[in-house]
Every structure is written in C-alpha cells, then in structure tokens.
Amino acid sequence: TKVFYNGTYVEFNNPEKAKKYAEKVAKKVGGTFTEKNGQFHVE
C-alpha cells in the first residue's frame, strides 16, 4: 500500500499502517488524504 505525498511515496505492507501514516501526514501539513485504488494520497 503506497502513501503518496508531495511527488514521492512511502510503501507499507500493511494497509492499516498506511492509513495511519496518511492521517498523520495530512494532519501535520493541514491537508486531507484520500484513498484511490487502494492507495492513499495526501493533499
């Protein structure tokens, strides 16, 4: 499961961990995250 952010991504074996990371990054940058095709995108 990949989490895309700012033109790069971090890959996780565990979708649950990926979601938590996406939430954390989104919170940090004051943005939101969306799930597309089983991957997370932070905006």
Rank of each mutant, 00 (worst) to 15 (best):
T1H: 13
T1S: 09
K2W: 08
V3G: 00
F4S: 03
F4L: 04
F4E: 02
F4C: 10
Y5H: 08
Y5E: 02
Y5F: 13
Y5N: 03
N6V: 04
N6C: 15
N6Y: 10
G7I: 02
G7S: 06
G7N: 09
T8N: 10
T8Q: 11
Y9V: 12
V10T: 09
V10H: 07
V10L: 10
V10Q: 07
V10P: 00
E11I: 14
E11N: 09
E11A: 11
E11D: 06
F12T: 01
N13M: 12
N13S: 14
N13Q: 13
N14A: 07
N14G: 06
N14F: 05
N14P: 01
P15E: 08
P15N: 08
P15Q: 10
E16V: 11
E16F: 10
E16T: 11
K17E: 15
K17F: 11
K17D: 15
K17W: 11
A18M: 01
A18H: 00
A18F: 02
A18L: 00
A18S: 02
K19C: 11
K20N: 10
K20W: 11
K20G: 07
K20P: 02
K20H: 10
Y21N: 02
Y21C: 09
A22I: 02
A22K: 02
E23S: 08
E23M: 13
E23K: 11
E23I: 11
E23C: 15
K24W: 15
K24L: 14
K24C: 15
K24N: 11
K24R: 12
K24D: 12
V25I: 14
V25R: 05
A26T: 04
A26Q: 02
A26G: 03
K27Y: 08
K27I: 10
K27L: 12
K27G: 07
K28I: 13
K28Y: 12
K28D: 12
V29W: 09
V29Q: 06
V29H: 08
G30N: 10
G30M: 07
G30F: 06
G30W: 05
G31T: 07
T32I: 12
T32S: 10
F33H: 03
T34G: 05
T34R: 11
T34Q: 09
E35G: 04
E35A: 06
E35Y: 13
E35D: 05
K36Y: 10
N37V: 04
N37F: 09
N37P: 03
N37W: 07
N37C: 14
N37R: 07
N37K: 07
G38D: 04
G38Y: 04
G38V: 01
G38S: 05
G38H: 05
Q39C: 12
F40Q: 01
F40V: 03
F40W: 13
F40L: 07
H41R: 06
H41K: 05
H41V: 11
H41Y: 15
V42G: 01
V42A: 02
V42R: 01
V42C: 03
V42T: 02
E43P: 03
E43F: 15
E43G: 09
E43Y: 15
